[in-house]
Design a protein around this nucleic acid. Structure first.
Lengths: 354, 354
DNA sequence: TACAAAATTGTTAGCGATAACGATTACTGT
DNA sequence: ACAGTAATCGTTATCGCTAACAATTTTGTA
């Protein structure tokens, strides 16, 4: 039953014997062993042209046999180029950014560029530090979530001579390139949908606004439409910390407790609306008859629930793809690329919860 | 209502004016402007000693004013040290690794080290490439999920002169350091629990085994205990691709369709067991009366459900913390650190689904 | 066969920072 | 005021690799 384990062990032992024989291999060592100059070895291992088939093979063979791992620090310093793209996102727990990353990776795979992720924790000062750290490695591009940065961050990004793409949001002035959706409009659209379904007593549950600019914009767009109809939110609840199903459930319970006649709740995230739905399931409330629910992001966790919850797709994967394409385009062209700003159209899924 | 937006715009414009005035600042430029040597500027900006309070202040001021971002490529090449820790995980979508990362980050924050994430996609050859890439940057440490690697990967990791910690699993022979739980034992324990509750007609739903060694070990441990009781799994379902609630729901529906008399299902992941639970909710089945469910990982999404699902906590955060601590310890001590292997004890939560 | 063009290899000079050590200046006590 | 030590600051030599260009070999062709 465990045969695959013992097989693995046998292989490992065999390899360990070779281990101590080898010391830190340098390009110089490979070159010497191959009887060529460092330059030729360098060219061969990089796949550069101007190396004969035979010597290239010999060099590659020696490098592999000795487990040579090129020192990219030295290489990058010399060639003045780093095949990394800095990707700065607020969090990886929120279920939303992994998909953006996935879009970025899939596009970058066609190139030698590799994404490197930094986490800003929804804090502008932390973001500054993360970006400074990433820029100190002189990446080939920067993709950063959001349009809001502190002065120091903006200055750094502008002075960096690599392409910068701000993603996820288009409501504001981008530093240069930008891909995303209008959260202001997403909020407005969902409000319109909710109103068109006849709901009037509406509540909102969302993150502490100063932390999450995009959630704030959705909130603003949402209330803007309500106000235009001379309506206002019956109740608003703000939480700090990560969104979670548990928090969504708890806050929903509290809000419905305060306002049993609430007709609809708009959440700043699907994770929260799922929590709200869980409360309804546990409390025996039927959705949308007793209360209607709507979230945001169109996260994967919505799939498979007994009921399809209303949401707005934030085009996360596509945002990642487009951003990466802009980086690639800027890399190819010699001069500056004219600022590109792509506004994607978020799609509302009404599901069965409205 | 949108006042915070226009404020942001005003600030941005002001900054842009400065942008074009500055070119690529080098340490040499900072030094020159401060009227000191490169060395003093370097020392000042690094916070190294042997710089007077006043000159340090002057240099820092100039650097900040001109938006100088040190070139860590040059710095690292010179100092032969890189303050990065490579973290290689199979996926970020699976809900499980972000928490490991979080544990790592929290510990590394006490040091100058920063984690850098690489994704191996549950493929050993992809893992090899990712690790080669990371090692080429000469990190101060490597944390990699799993004990199974191909020969080339093992060789690289052994030859690298930085500490290597394999995490999440202890069933096998670690290259050197290792922190995790025994998945074999986790499988056995859950089987024992399920049997002790009287269930006999049991099914299993899990990932395609060759991809995920730890899921395979849980499966092996699980069936081992069943076999010891002369029992065998009534049904086994394997899926490929990422785990998701939708897949869990669908496969559960299919399995219960094939075997309506099934008493209990063990899943390789909580994401899947939640899906199973969703099927039960939708199909009007009561858990555990009609069917008992058990998952693995103790993911956050379990919190807030109407019913607490049985699971095993994989100590993800703690694993990350311990691994980072080993890296730090190895960094401090001059010589080699004796191999450390920490086996954490996974805690089973029975919840109400068994 | 010879000679230019093409293909392959080698040489020189950094890339931008820092370690190590040397030089200078600033204090300290008597 | 002056030796002696401590606090600052500067000079030199890399770090490991790669552009750019020079040198060499191979190839093609008249």
């Amino acid at each position: 039953m465990l045969s695959f384990l013992s097989a693995a062990l046998a292989v490992r032992r065999e390899v360990q014997d070779h281990a101590h024989m080898t010391k830190k291999m340098l390009l110089k060592d490979v070159a010497q062993l191959a009887g060529v100059s460092e330059m030729t070895a360098s060219r061969a291992l990089r796949g550069a042209p101007d190396v004969s088939k035979s010597t290239r093979a010999k060099i590659e063979e020696i490098a592999r046999a000795h487990g040579y791992v090129p020192n990219r620090i030295a290489g990058s310093l010399s060639s003045q180029s780093v095949n990394l793209v800095a990707v700065v996102v607020p969090s990886l727990n929120s279920f939303v950014f992994p998909e953006v990353l996935s879009g970025i990776s899939s596009v970058l795979k066609q190139s030698p560029l590799k994404p490197v992720v930094g986490i800003s924790g929804y804090e502008l000062d932390e973001e500054e530090e993360v970006i400074r750290e990433m820029l100190s490695w002189r990446p080939s591009g920067v993709i950063v979530a959001g349009l809001e940065h502190n002065d120091a961050t903006r200055k750094m990004l502008q002075q960096s001579d690599c392409p910068v793409v701000e993603v996820m949001d288009v409501d504001g002035t981008p530093l240069r390139h930008c891909v995303g959706i209008s959260h202001l409009q997403a909020g407005r659209d969902m409000a319109a949908q909710i109103l068109s379904h006849g709901y009037r007593r509406i509540g909102f549950i969302g993150t502490k606004m100063p932390q999450d600019f995009r959630a704030r914009k959705r909130f603003d767009g949402f209330t803007e439409v309500l106000t235009a109809q001379s309506l206002s939110l019956v109740d608003v609840e703000h939480y700090s910390g990560d969104s979670s199903i548990a928090t969504g459930r708890q806050l929903t319970a509290q809000m419905l407790d305060r306002h049993p006649d609430l007709e609809c709740i708009y959440y700043s995230s699907d994770v929260m609306s799922v929590g709200g739905y869980m409360h309804c399931l546990a409390a025996g409330l039927s959705v949308p008859q007793d209360v209607a629910l709507a979230g945001f992001n169109n996260l994967q966790i919505l799939e498979g629930l007994p009921l399809e919850l209303a949401t707005t797709d934030a085009c996360r994967r596509e945002v990642g793809e487009r951003a990466a394409e802009i980086i690639l385009k800027a890399r190819e062209s010699t001069g500056d690329v004219a600022p590109i700003c792509e506004t994607l159209s978020p799609r509302i899924s009404l599901g069965q919860s409205l």
